[in-house]
Design a protein around this nucleic acid. Structure first.
Lengths: 204, 204
DNA sequence: CTTAATTTGAACATATGTGTTCAAATGGTC
DNA sequence: GACCATTTGAACACATATGTTCAAATTAAG
């Protein structure tokens, strides 16, 4: 079972890489097998269809990141600080794992799992931040704010992926701008966005 | 030559629709011909390869929107007003031409032409807005701001495309939040983002 | 009406991909 | 070292895509 799950992992890792670079449908099983360092038959042994690999990989990737980010919020109460760290986590990881970043960027707006990753986590924090006066925007704008958070996260990742900025700058700048958009005073926003960024907790 | 360009147009229109819904590589020539209401041979007569259709369509689409938005700025001096209108144009058009919107969302981060559409136009306006004191952010953040503009535009389109908000709300909310991020006072940002939005000029 | 240009749709050869099967090789476990 | 699960890689049938060719039909233009 260990060998099998290892093969599955290698297939999934290779899938992330290939899908990130070349899109979904242009990847065939032969290439995937080669990239995974695995025989073609092994793909068919472990997976139903190439299409399914994509959904699976996207869902796992979204879920894993979501859980780790939520874990990291354990010791942080301030919604603004949480939000800032969230954006910066994405920027830093886009730097550390380029395939991961490109995958998310490429499919951010067209895959349901990835859409959920952005829509879910910030929603509650944004609401509490709004209710406690931490933020300053109209309640009717909440939906737009949620999707703005996604936009800020993605644009930070984009800067990193394209090499326009270091992950530090991209993450902090984007986080600061985002907090400003939500009505956090500039000086505070700057401070929050430049605090030391803890490591992203592992899932063990 | 008129008949030929008409066939080409139908092919391109169909290509936008198909690519938007299903991605690039999963569209084959037979389907494209069918969707364009054209014989399969006609595709090969007018186009070199399916791949090329995508690049062509993306470039035209980016270029056309860019030119029309720039045209619309003729009578507007305020950089903040321009920026707000730009974002709202994208939101409105995503409503009026859903295929257009989905196409842009799907390939925004993975196609060079579309990337250029966001990076180019706002850059100069943002700089003048910064120099004239209209905005309030650090010059070193300019790059992050440019990509934030893209993020705001895309997230507005996303709201429209997914039916979460009307184009009016999505456009105005996103524009207002964006201006807030750039340091425009809240009341002003709100006002600017809710001014009547002129029609997007045609290219004649 | 005539002429030129374009489109049509079928036929063809070629290439590539999928999905299945299976005996042999591999590798971990008691 | 015997056992079991997994992986391997080749072979197979089948399906689908590409790209080309071409005579007939259609359309546009003078």
């Amino acid at each position: 079972m260990n060998a099998a799950s290892s093969a599955q992992e290698r297939i999934r890792d290779a899938a992330v890489r290939l899908f990130a670079e070349r899109g979904v449908a242009s990847v065939n099983v032969r290439e995937l097998a080669q990239a995974a360092g695995v025989a073609r038959g092994t793909i068919y042994n472990n997976v139903d269809s190439p299409e399914e690999i994509f959904s699976d990989v996207a869902a796992r990737l979204a879920n894993e990141m979501h859980e780790r980010v939520v874990l990291s919020f354990d010791l942080i109460d301030d919604p603004a600080h949480r939000l800032s760290n969230g954006v910066r986590f994405f920027a830093r990881r886009a730097h550390e794992e380029p395939h991961w970043g490109r995958f998310i960027l490429r499919f951010a707006f067209s895959n349901a799992s990835l859409q959920g990753m952005w829509a879910g986590p910030p929603a509650r924090d944004l609401k509490t931040g709004l209710d406690t006066g931490r933020y300053n925007f109209a309640p009717s704008q909440l939906t737009a704010v949620i999707s703005m958070v996604a936009g800020a996260g993605l644009s930070a990742m984009f800067l990193v992926t394209e090499g326009h900025k270091s992950w530090r700058e991209a993450g902090s700048d984007s986080a600061e701008l985002l907090l400003s958009a939500l009505g956090v005073p500039k000086a505070q926003a700057h401070d929050i966005a430049h605090r030391p960024l803890p490591p992203l907790p592992e899932l063990k």
